[in-house]
Structures are given as C-alpha cells and as structure tokens.
C-alpha cells in the first residue's frame, strides 16, 4: 500500500510539475513567423519529440527553450526557471546537442571533455562517458579528424557531461548512415532509461515513431497534433496502403472504382492505393487478377506518423520541405 501510494504521488508530481512548460511561444524573424503561439508541456522521464518538415519551427522552438534565442512572446519555464533570464543556471542542469555546430578543429577529444566538464558545477566521470560512446580509442584524436558519426557521439557525450536533468537533441541523426542512426536510437533510449528527460526534434517520422513517448507535430509554426505515436495513428482512422509494381501498363480506373479504395496513384514505376479495412487488400488483388494485370513486389503498409502528417496538412513530409 505504501509503495503504491508512493508511485502514485511520484507520478502525480511529474504531471503537476512538468520539467518544461511552453505557453503561447511566438518568434518572428523579420517578416517570417517561425513559431506562431504554441503551447505544450514536457514531463519528467519521457522522450518528447517534435517532428515536422524543415522550416516548421522545430529548431526555433528548441533553441528558445534552451535559452539560446529570446522569444518574441509567451512564457517559458525550464526546470521552473526562465531559460533566458536565468540562462546560465538553467544550462547547469540541461545538456544540449545543437543541430549544427563544431569544436575547435585541433582540440583533442579528451581536451574537449575536460574543458566542457570545467564549465559545470557538477560533472560525471567523462572517461566512462567516452567509453559508453565508443570514443575511448579516439581520445587523443583531433576533432577535425573524427568521422561524422564520431563527432555526433562526442556531442552527445558533451551534452551528458553534467549529468543533466533534460537532454536536448536537435536533428540528432541527420546525415548519418542507417547503421549509425540505429546506434543513436539505442543511445537515446538508454539516456531515457537512466531517468533523464529527452527533448528531440527530427524530420524523420520513423525516428519519432520508434523513439518518442509523445510527439508534437509541427507545421508552419503551429502544433497540429500532440499525443503518443500510437494514439495519433489510431485517431487517424487512416487507410491502408497497398503498393505494387505492375508488369506492363495499367489503368487505374478499376482500382479507383473499388468501394473500399480511397485514392490510387502512380508513383514512379509503382502504383500506390489507399483504402479502408482489411477487405481492401483482397479487393485490390482480386481486381488485378480479374483484369489480368501481372504485378510484383506487392507491399501492404500500416498507417504511420507520415500518414498522420499527410492527413493533417494535406502534404507529404518530403514535399512539405
């Protein structure tokens, strides 16, 4: 009983005391409104993601929360403090990985770790951090000699050096190869499992879907949806997607005429058809067979966050850029 009420109150505390509160945040660059009055909260121990196409306002939002940019309007609280006015106090307790940054070209890995450790009142054993990030063998290497993935891991190590309460990761995996991206994902989950809150931005929907406990979808400076990826997809009541590669020419008319189909289109060599309910798959295959259309590489895709974005904005992520 005691244990249960303890868990309960800890959970309530997390809800009552979010680690980040954003109220009506607004930021304009000259004539462009980058962020147009958004509000949300981030709770202790979750991986919170912000997704959206380039230019949606993700980086502006994250940098306002980090205290690196001053907002034009709204209220921000990070660990109970104003990140601009109490910037240095807030930055003692958070870790930041910036979307685009570098270190001095000829600083050695261990020198960067020791230097950054000196900026904080408390810091962890950075040799262990290098070990975790698989950089121990490169501790004497100049920053400029590191590969893209190694640089990114070094920046994560630097973001963790003060044992922060919140870690901010802005476009963590952009420009990394698939294997490095998978490794990064595991690293982020590991950070959360150590009890830290993770705030990340990405323009890869599959990254948000795989990693985030909750996702805010941003488009043109507005939050168009905010929930867990599973709930977002569920609420969408989205069509199934069936894709195949026809052998020879194919007319889309009969597929479009199916009562279960919602939309059919050519996409390069492939045909993509959207429809409702499981019978849709059978309907498509039956129609193709009846029409004597041969096909290969048939794939059925469940709705994803990508579809959520499409449904909410009428645009695809990649086209939204």
């Amino acid at each position: 009983m005691v244990g249960e009420s303890h868990i309960c109150s800890a959970w309530e505390e997390a809800i009552v005391n979010p680690v980040i509160t954003v109220e009506n945040l607004r930021k304009t660059y000259e004539s462009i409104t980058a962020v147009d009055g958004i509000s949300f909260e981030v709770y202790r121990g979750e991986i919170f993601g912000m997704v959206g196409p380039n230019g949606a306002g993700k980086t502006t939002t994250i940098e306002c929360i980090e205290g690196l940019r001053a907002a034009d309007g709204g209220t921000l609280r990070v660990l109970g403090q104003d990140p601009v006015h109490n910037g240095r106090a807030v930055r003692q307790r958070i870790g930041i990985q910036l979307q685009e940054s570098n270190l001095q070209p000829r600083i050695r890995v261990w020198e960067a770790m020791a230097l950054f450790a000196s900026f904080y009142q408390q810091s962890v054993d950075w040799n262990a951090l290098l070990e975790q990030m698989d950089l121990q063998a490169h501790r004497h290497v100049f920053y400029e000699k590191l590969s893209g993935g190694q640089k990114q891991r070094l920046f994560i190590a630097l973001a963790l050096i003060n044992d922060p309460d919140i870690v901010f990761l802005d476009e963590l995996t952009t420009g990394l190869d698939p294997q490095a991206r998978l490794n990064m994902w595991e690293m982020v989950e590991d950070i959360r499992d150590r009890g830290k809150t993770v705030f990340l931005t990405t323009h890869y929907m599959e990254e948000a879907e795989r990693l985030c406990d909750r996702v805010a979808i941003l488009d043109q400076g507005h939050i168009v949806a905010l929930d867990s990826p599973a709930n977002l997809v569920k609420q969408l009541d989205a069509p199934l997607r069936v894709e195949f590669e026809p052998v020879g020419p194919v007319a889309l008319g009969p597929l479009q005429a199916l009562p279960t189909a919602t939309h059919v289109e050519h996409h390069g060599h492939r045909v993509i058809a959207w429809g409702k309910g499981d019978p849709f798959i059978v309907d498509v295959v039956q129609t193709l067979t009846n029409q004597h259309i041969r096909f290969r590489h048939l794939q059925v895709a469940q709705p994803s966050l990508e579809d959520v974005f499409l449904a909410l904005t009428g645009r695809r992520m990649e086209r939204g850029q």
Partner: peptide, 17 residues
C-alpha cells in the same frame, strides 16, 4: 573562423561565462 564554424555557438550552449 570559430564563429563561422559555429564553435562559439556550442560554447555558448554551456554555463560558461
């Protein structure tokens, strides 16, 4: 050069005075 390559930016993202 440090500013151009956003090294200063990274340093600024710490509590360094």
């Amino acid at each position: 050069s440090l500013r151009e390559h956003r090294v200063l930016r990274r340093l600024r993202a710490t509590p360094m005075h």
